[in-house]
Amino acid sequence: MSVYARITGTGSALPARRLTNDDMAALLAQRGLETSDAWIVERTGIRARHFAEDGQMASDLALDASLRALQAAGRAPHEVDLIIVATSTPDMVFPSTATILQRKLHEAALAAGGRGPIGAPAFDVQAVCTGFIYALTVADAMLRTGGARCALVVGAEVFSRILNFDDRTTCVLFGDGAGAVVLEAVEHDGSGPGVLASDLHADGRHTDILCVPGTVAGGSVLGDPLLRMDGQAVFKLAVGVLEETARTTLAKAGKTEAEVDWLIPHQANIRIMQGTARKLKLPMERVVVTVDQHGNTSAASIPLALDQAVRDGRIQPGQLLLLEGVGGGFTWGSVLLRY
């Protein structure tokens, strides 16, 4: 018998403010820029996205998603002994958004007459759009080695805060949101639920093709605090590395693409998802797609899509799920798990 990290609950959260492509076109028109629903849909597959209100932070979205995941798992906040948050838009420079989430979970638990996860290790992972895959892999390793028994793994982003609304090629792509999973250590012979294999990579030579090249220095912003992206370069790299990491992870687990029930990719661009599915010989009917309604929510996109597919009944216990992401860094990776 071996220890596996099993997903026992999922949750997600979206800001109330929803902007359609027509809303974005009107917003950009005020800046003298042209775009349209047809232009955005044709190039990205995106039809709408959600933006956080002023004062709504990544930790707020993370809290809502986490409470839903805990409820689905039948767990109370004090039972969590590890918190990992994947984000590129943290509440502050430090401490980590994970510790802020820990405090908010504690406060929510006290208000309900319970206890919070105070004392559990809590930290952030920053791998941009691959962040949730990185965080899930770290949590899996800690559960397998006995470092934790019940982990909360969250992807939470407020990308609307770092968008350049004078650049129509990037500002229409991104949205805000959060997704969370509860991971619990279980023992079985390998035929039961849990993470079966994972694969992580990075190539810092491509830092400049997707970045926010700014920082805080001397009380001021040094550099450019807004997102920059070379869309064509990202697209070319993404499809190739996603196929490679998917095949590597499947091989580690002794599985083939034909055995995959659901591909849950990072929701960046429908063309990238279609290209990856085609290379893996998976029909789009077996790909979970939410990019049309959420846009690119970076580290939140995979757990958001996962939660939606679990709650609408598409994903069933025992099915094989292939999760994969690619993002700034340049980072990429994948996780194969049995639900």
Rank of each mutant, 00 (worst) to 15 (best):
T8F: 03
T8E: 03
L14Y: 05
L14H: 04
M24W: 07
A26K: 13
Q30D: 05
L33A: 04
I40P: 05
V41D: 13
G45E: 00
R47M: 07
D60S: 13
A65P: 03
A69H: 08
A69E: 01
A73W: 10
I84E: 13
I84N: 13
T89A: 06
T89P: 04
Q102P: 12
G119H: 04
D124P: 10
Y134F: 15
T137Y: 02
A139E: 02
D140R: 12
R149N: 13
A151K: 09
V153S: 07
G155Q: 06
E157K: 05
V158W: 03
D166C: 08
D167N: 12
L183P: 06
L183C: 06
H188W: 00
L200T: 05
D203Y: 05
G204F: 10
L210W: 10
V212P: 14
G214K: 06
L222G: 01
G223Y: 03
G223I: 05
P225D: 00
R228W: 01
R228P: 10
M229F: 07
K236A: 11
T245Q: 04
R247I: 03
T248W: 00
L250S: 07
A251T: 09
A251F: 04
G254K: 15
K255Q: 15
D261C: 13
Q267E: 09
A268H: 07
Q274A: 15
G275Y: 14
R278W: 15
E285A: 14
R286G: 11
V287R: 00
T290G: 02
A299M: 05
P303A: 06
L304I: 14
I315E: 01
Q316W: 07
G318D: 08
L323Y: 13
G328Y: 06
F330A: 09
L336S: 04
R338L: 03
